[in-house]
Structures are given as C-alpha cells and as structure tokens.
C-alpha cells in the first residue's frame, strides 16, 4: 500500500516536472484580423526625384530655382473600401525631405478590405494644432511651431531662385494656421487589398514639389514676396495652398 502511495507521488511529480516548464500549449494559429499599409513618400521636381541645394529646376513661369528645405505634416488618414466605407486611422507623420527615414511609415490595424481611395491632411487638425505638451513628431523642438497661439507650421518650403537681375534670392514659404489646413481625397491608382493572405500593402504618395508654383495659380517668383509666414501674406498663402491641393497622387 505504502509502495503504491510513494509510486503515485513519484508519478505525479514526474508528470508535473515534464509539463511545468514546457512552452505554452500549442494553440491554433490565430487568424490575423487586419493588416497594414506601408506608406512611402516620393518627392519630385519637374518630374524627377527631388534633389536639394542645386539649381536644377525651372518653375512653370520660367524661374530657375532650387530646393533647400522641405518639411511638412501628414495626418488624419482615412482609407476607403467597399467593405469598410471610410476608415479613419490615428496617424501623423513629420516628413523631412533631407531625412529619408521619415519618408516611410506604417499605418497599422487596418481592417481587411480593398482600399481604393485615401484622405489625409497636410497639417494638423485644430485640436492638435493648439494643444501643447506634445512629443515625438509634434515636439516643438522640431522647430515646426511658431508659437502656441498660432500653432504648427504645416508645410515649410524653402529654396532659392535667380531673380530678374540674376541675383540669387532665398525664399521661404511657411504655411500654417487652421484656415490653411490642406485636406486631400484621391483615388488610389492601384487598389490595395488587405486579406488573411495579404496582410501588407504598399502605398506610394507622390508629392510634386514644383506644383506649388504651377497651377491653378501660375506664380512668378520675381513678383511675389520671397518670404511668407502665412499671417503676414494671407493672399499669397491662399494661392500657394490652392496649388498644393493638386500636388499629391496616390499609387
């Protein structure tokens, strides 16, 4: 009897030992419930990949110019599919032309669907624009804030052009303030399908930098103020903003 008793203890201990430290019991592999869209920003000038600090480009009006600095916020992404309708995603990103690492970001937790259109802002919604205590891309240390009262600079574009007297003149167009938030909605040229068998898709957003001077408002750099910080040049800022509304395509 006693032998049986100790045998039982030994058996129980052995079984306990065998299973106590084992990995978690294998379970059925969970099916992904959503996917992600990897966004890549492609910046062009005159139809070619943008390069900084060189007089390589002409505006539509014939001004020779170069790009020295471009940085801007993308935010409030929404994606449309027949299955989900418009799906809003909580994502903002500060893009810096001179930092390639900022040209790629991922929008996660996307429901499955065939996404055929995208909406986003260049800039930040009013609540975000005037909130303080921000970190990461919204850290004021990124130097994309004028003051807390005026909010963030949405689109900071700087360069140089050669004026009518052959003088090299720097320009700086900083667009911000709630009234100049740029809202986009466009078709995605190649539908992005997310499903259990395809949980990742790549979306390319192309920004034609020179569009800011092209249309519908043809801008001659010689005839406008070389510097605008929005509130000092509201009429010019409106022209630039209207042009930028045609500057993005989604592929």
């Amino acid at each position: 009897m006693k032998t049986t008793y100790f045998s039982s203890i030994l058996l129980v201990s052995s079984i306990f030992l065998l299973f106590a430290c084992s990995e978690k019991e294998p379970t059925a592999t969970p099916q992904p419930r959503g996917g992600e869209i990897k966004v890549h920003l492609n910046h062009t000038v005159n139809g070619k990949t943008a390069e900084r600090d060189q007089f390589l480009y002409m505006t539509e009006a014939g001004d020779s110019f170069q790009v020295t600095l471009l940085q801007y916020y993308l935010s409030n992404f929404e994606f449309h599919s027949p299955e989900t309708g418009w799906k809003k995603m909580d994502k903002y990103q500060l893009i810096r032309l001179n930092e390639a690492g900022t040209h790629d970001f991922t929008i996660k937790d996307m429901p499955f669907g065939a996404y055929d259109s995208v909406r986003f802002y260049v800039g930040l919604d009013s609540a975000t624009n005037h909130d303080i205590d921000k970190e990461a891309d919204l850290d004021p240390g990124n130097e994309m804030v004028w003051t807390w009262n005026t909010g963030y600079i949405f689109y900071m574009f700087e360069g140089k052009f050669i004026d009518n007297n052959d003088v090299v003149v720097p320009f700086a167009y900083h667009i911000g303030m709630d009234a100049y938030l740029m809202k986009y909605e466009m078709p995605i040229q190649s539908v992005k399908t997310l499903s259990t068998s395809a949980t990742q898709a790549d979306l390319e957003l192309q920004l034609e930098i020179d569009q800011i001077f092209r249309s519908p408002n043809l801008i001659e750099l010689n005839t406008i103020a070389p510097v605008s910080h929005t509130f000092d040049e509201p009429a010019l800022t409106t022209l630039l903003k209207d042009n930028l509304l045609d500057a993005f395509t989604a592929k």
Partner: peptide, 22 residues
C-alpha cells in the same frame, strides 16, 4: 529500503523542478 528510495527520487525531482523554473 524501497520507501527511502522513492522518497529520495521524489525529493530529487521536486528539487529539480523547483530550481529549474526559478
């Protein structure tokens, strides 16, 4: 004798288990 052996083995296993997961 057998009892002692079982106790010894059982204790060893228990000790091993306690230490192996610490």
């Amino acid at each position: 004798m057998k009892k002692s052996l079982y106790i010894l083995i059982g204790t060893a296993i228990l000790s091993f288990w306690l230490q192996s997961c610490s």
